[in-house]
Design a protein around this nucleic acid. Sequence first.
DNA 1: TTGTACGCGTTATCAC
DNA 2: GTGATAACGCGTACAA
Lengths: 334, 334
Amino acid sequence: MRAVTLRDVARLAEVSTATASKALNGRPDVNAATRARVLAAASRLSFSPNAVARSLSAGRTGTVGLLTSDLEGRFSLPILMGAEDAFGAEQTSVFLCDARGDAIREQHHLRALLSRQVDGLIVVGARPDSRPSLGARLSVPVVYAYSPSENPADLSLVCDNVGGGRLAVDHLRTAGCTRIAHITGEPDYSAAQDRARGAQERLAEESLGLVTGRVWFGAWTEGWGRGATRRLLQEGEPVDAIFAGSDQIARGVLDALQEAQLRVPEDVAVIGFDNWEAIARESRPALTTVDMRLESLGRRAAQALAAAIDGRPESGVVVNGCRVVQRGSTAPVA
Amino acid sequence: MRAVTLRDVARLAEVSTATASKALNGRPDVNAATRARVLAAASRLSFSPNAVARSLSAGRTGTVGLLTSDLEGRFSLPILMGAEDAFGAEQTSVFLCDARGDAIREQHHLRALLSRQVDGLIVVGARPDSRPSLGARLSVPVVYAYSPSENPADLSLVCDNVGGGRLAVDHLRTAGCTRIAHITGEPDYSAAQDRARGAQERLAEESLGLVTGRVWFGAWTEGWGRGATRRLLQEGEPVDAIFAGSDQIARGVLDALQEAQLRVPEDVAVIGFDNWEAIARESRPALTTVDMRLESLGRRAAQALAAAIDGRPESGVVVNGCRVVQRGSTAPVA
DNA sequence: TTGTACGCGTTATCAC
DNA sequence: GTGATAACGCGTACAA
C-alpha cells in the first residue's frame, strides 16, 4: 500500500495540492470552509507529510548531527540527553554517531552527516581537553561540547572545572575544615589540573594551602583513592577533609578512612566530583560531590546551535557552572 | 555559496546529468573515458551527492530510528553501540530518540521518525519485562531489543536471563561450591525471576537446592546486598558461595563478607551479574560476573532489522546468550 | 480565494 | 554510450 500524499488529500477534498498545502500549513489566505474540508480529508486518510520531500525543497532538514567520541563514557550521555530535549522532539531530530575516538571514523561519519544535509553539528569529546577543530570550511554550523575546539573561532561549551574545584573547597571551608588534602586523577587531564588549581586558588584566598603542600595526582580509580589515602595518613600530618577528583577516587578514599578507623564526616570530611549517582548514593556514608550539570551543558549546546542555524553564530569558549550536591560525607553547616 | 550539485559536475565534464549519475554510481553502460572525465570533474568540485534528494526518488532513506526508554540506564547504551556499528556508518544513520519512559513522548517521536521516512525502527526498553507493541499497522519494520514486545508476531531480541542464572551456578559448581545462596533484586522484575529460576534449575540437576531454601529478593542496590548477606550469615547455615543478581548487589555482599571476616573466594565465592566494569573491576577482589553481551544483542537487532527491510522479516522472541567473566571473587578451577 | 506551474537534486526509463 | 524527460512529494511564486 502506497503512502498517502498531499495529492490524495487534495483529491478527496476536491481542491488543488497548492490549496491543500496552504490549508494544512495554516496559511491565512484560504477560505475557512475549504480549510475544514482539507483538514477533514487529511485526518480521514491519516495523512502525514513527507519530511524528506519538504526538506528537499526547503533546503533545511530539521536534522542535527551529534558526533561523540565515546559513548561508553558516562559524560557524553547526559549532554546528549540535554541536547535532545532542548530541540523539541517534533522540530529537530538527532543523528547519533560514535567515532570511538578514531579520527578516520569521525571523518566517515562527518561525510555521511553532511550528505544527509544536517542543519548543524554538535561535537562531544571524550575528555575535557581540547580537540582539533573540524575546520571552518564546513557548510553548517558546529558547536563543541565538553571538549573545546582548539580553534578559538569555533564555539565551545565546557565545564567549569576551576570553579568546581573552588566550590568543593568552599563547601569544606563552610563546614569548618581547615586541613584539606586533594587526591585526584591523571595529571595530563586538564580537568585534574583545573580542579586542583581552583581548589588552591580558593584556599589561597584565606591564606591556606593544601595539607602536605602537594596535589596527589595518580589515576581515576578507586584503587588510587585508597592507596593515596593510606600514604597520606602515613605521613602523619593531621587532615580534616579530603577533596577527591572523582567519585570513584572518593570511594577509595572512604574505604581507606574506614580501614584507618576514622569517622566520616566527624574526623575527616570527603567530597567527590562527578555526581555519578550509582557510586555517590550507594557509598557509606553517601557522598557529597560536585555535579558538572552536564544536561545543562547539552541544552545550552543545542540552543547555541539553533541560534547559529538561524544566522546568529557565537564563538569562543563558554563555561558552564558546577554545583555541589550535599550528602552524608560532609557535615551539614554547624 | 551554493552547494555543488550533479548538474555542476555534468556541466564541467560536458555530459548530461544522466550520464554523470551513471558514471558516479559505477554503472556499466558508460564509456571509460567519459567516466574518467566525470570522476575528475566531481573530485575537482569536491562533489558530494545530496542524500535527501536521492532518498526522495529512491523511496529509501538509509535511515533508522532508535527509540529508547531510558538513556540513563547503562543497558540501552551498549545495545545502541552494537546496533550503530552493525549498520556500516556510511550506509545507515541512526536517529536517536529517548522517550524517558513516557508513552506520549514515545508517540511524538514515532510520528517524527515516520515522517522522516526512516526505513525501520529499533525499540529498546528500559527493563527486561515485556512492553506494549507499537502495533502492526506501521509502514516500516520494527525490532524490539532488551524488552520484548507483548505481541508474539513482532520480533524481539532479549537476554537469556535463565541461561545466565544457569551459567552463574555452573561456574560456582565447577569451582567446587555446593552451598550456594542467591541474593537478587526486586521480585517484580522478570530478570530477577528468570535468573533465580535458571540458578535453581541448574542446582536441581545435581539434586541440590539453594542454601536456606529461598531466593533473597529485595532491591537492586548495594545496601540490600549488605543487609541480606548479614541476615543470611546470622541464620547460621554454612554458605560457600553467593550468586548476586547484579554487580551492585554483589558489591554489598563483598562488603558484608569482609565485615564478617570471611575471605573471598577462599571462604565464600561471589559472582555478580551485568559486568558493569566500573563496579566489577574496582571491587576487592575484582568481581567475577555474568555478562549479558548487550553489544551483541544490539548487533543482532540491527542485522534482523536490515533483513526485515530487505523483505525477510522474522518474528518471535530470540534469546541472546550470556557469558561468564572470571575475575578474583571466584576461585580458578582447582 | 483558488489553481497552474515550477523548482528542490537525484535516479530510472527509454529513445536515439 | 549517451541524453532528454519524467518521476519522487512538497512548497510557493504568480496568474486567474
